[in-house]
Write a protein that binds this DNA or RNA. Sequence first.
DNA 1: AATGAATGAGGTTTCATTCAT
DNA 2: GATGAATGAAACCTCATTCAT
Lengths: 206, 206, 206, 206
Amino acid sequence: MSKRERNAEQSRLDILQAAEAEFASKGLYGARVDEIAALAGINKRMIYAYFGSKEALYMSVLQAVYKRMERAEAQLVADGLGGRDLIGAVIDLYFDFLAGDPQFVSIVMWENLNKAAYLKALPVQDLERPAFAYIRDAVAAGKALGVFRPELDEQDVALSLITACFANFSNCYTLSHLFERDLCCAEQIEQRKIETRAMLLAYLCL
Amino acid sequence: MSKRERNAEQSRLDILQAAEAEFASKGLYGARVDEIAALAGINKRMIYAYFGSKEALYMSVLQAVYKRMERAEAQLVADGLGGRDLIGAVIDLYFDFLAGDPQFVSIVMWENLNKAAYLKALPVQDLERPAFAYIRDAVAAGKALGVFRPELDEQDVALSLITACFANFSNCYTLSHLFERDLCCAEQIEQRKIETRAMLLAYLCL
Amino acid sequence: MSKRERNAEQSRLDILQAAEAEFASKGLYGARVDEIAALAGINKRMIYAYFGSKEALYMSVLQAVYKRMERAEAQLVADGLGGRDLIGAVIDLYFDFLAGDPQFVSIVMWENLNKAAYLKALPVQDLERPAFAYIRDAVAAGKALGVFRPELDEQDVALSLITACFANFSNCYTLSHLFERDLCCAEQIEQRKIETRAMLLAYLCL
Amino acid sequence: MSKRERNAEQSRLDILQAAEAEFASKGLYGARVDEIAALAGINKRMIYAYFGSKEALYMSVLQAVYKRMERAEAQLVADGLGGRDLIGAVIDLYFDFLAGDPQFVSIVMWENLNKAAYLKALPVQDLERPAFAYIRDAVAAGKALGVFRPELDEQDVALSLITACFANFSNCYTLSHLFERDLCCAEQIEQRKIETRAMLLAYLCL
DNA sequence: AATGAATGAGGTTTCATTCAT
DNA sequence: GATGAATGAAACCTCATTCAT
């Protein structure tokens, strides 16, 4: 192969990107270092120079992937919504984010299958999930305003919301087969978003 | 190793059981045939004699795992419930089944990461999911009785129900870390069951 | 599988026949004991009961195969020919035998690739090749009669004769490819027989 | 093992050479990749890096082996002989080549036992056998000059020549045993060469 | 910084052979 | 005599990682 430009930063990014694709589709065990190097168009040796090991590279990918979710959630702040609107916005955000970033979904699943072992090893400040705080605030505000049911627990709501969104993406392949219908396509996802919003609001509101 | 009893049926079952544990925790790629043989207390060669290959063994496990879900769902028939009660019973069933069978959860997740490639290759008659039909009937009956909202689509309801249950188990490790709290323990699961039942019924009922 | 008739002699023969086919097509290393058992329609264990080991079975096959050649050559005695006629008859015999018994050809080739190691280990009385003696006598007689060239050495003639016949069968596959023409078919073999007879007699006769 | 020189070309050649020896003596099935690696003094992994698989390595060996024959035959061109002299030269060439290259003989035999399956898969331009053309020309020229018998078919002659030479080498082990005499030694080969030349010319000439 | 060659441990699979019935 | 289950050694091949340039 012809020589690469000497550009450490670009090389690092190329490796990360290739690794994310490989880890998302095959997991930590199934991913091949050779494949990542080939995908990145880089010499395999560089992966070790930059990241040290396959596991360390996986952790860098994990961090980058959660960072994207964090950045998406950060937009909620800017919008300045509250109550029903914020809840609706969070659902839209999650559906749109997960639909647009299937590698996030895959890697979170791998990580759950690993019992979150690598996530736990990440430095903690790298994992802020601002939406959690916003959801809690929104529920508290909704209850204060008499819009939401007063007996709601904020954390329960956050969990209901996240889980109700996530499984639509994480399980779409097996469910598509069992329902004999493509549940991964854009129209179905849109339909699921509408239903999920209705379900969550029915659950929250008086 | 000491000699094994000569019992083909038992050997087959031992292999299947060991393989399920290994596949559930490490996936198809991560699982090691040597490890499965050791776990089953059997000579590795027998795995090939009985199942042909690691992939074929994985498919047998997949089938056995879904069979358990099928058998669990079959109990709904016996109960003869309808409307709200049936929906509540389905949620209880799913929570209890998933809580009691974490290997089912893991293997379904691996299979989704495989884009259901092996599930699709299974003979179709081996995958009846009777609950789907019961959910549909229950929704139709509830609508006819004026208990459920008339605009509900039966399949949407089934999907909402399944996804709302499943992600509580599939994602409990990463969520536990992010929420800094153990969400996989029995009490939390019980709490999630209650909330999920409330959410679903709020969504379904007039 | 249903139980076999209890018939030791028949079982032995079935095994020998299956083994010969397997060894002829794949050689000692390539042949599989399982395959031989399946071909013979017999339990693998019987091969060990009757023959002791794969190598011993191969030697039994080797012996059986050379026995066929011996029996074919024995017919020359009965015919009572001499001189030119005997030489012609030997060539016909070899061509017809080799054409009709490709497994003999293959096994002799495997054995040469083994540097005749197993042949050497066979008990010597099992390998009479009467034709050699007849060829020698025929050459001596032909010389005495003034039909054959007097300087001929009997053993040279025997070797010329055997080699000139054999390679037409042993090498027909590679030669067919290199000559871009099927040299293994009956017509070609017949043509080679005619040419070989002409060549040998041109060489022998004054 | 001590570290090897970093020299890809040399490593490739070492592997090829070791593989040829191993394949010649044991065939494709009997040859062991570990043995080849040990013989080549190289890490087994490199065999797969350079050749991809045992079968592919065998094909490379096959090609290299036939290349040697091709190069030997190419010398005939340079000599510029014709008629009887060319035929004599071809016989000498074949005897000398086959005597000096027993691995060629073995590998051609293995390949015949494979029914030339791998030879057929080789790219066709890698298998020029110039001697065939020269033999044909020599026969035609000899007939035109009235030295050779006019009814001769060029291809028949080429086949008679090749087969008459080859079997002296391919079958020397079994024949040595049956004739109770070492037919593989240099003197015997020389004697066979003389006889074969005499036989071929007796057959060709008026 | 970047490369291609090289390595050793370990992966799945296959095989001849033996045991228990 | 006949069977099917069981075994351990070894086969081919792959992988993450390191070395020399």
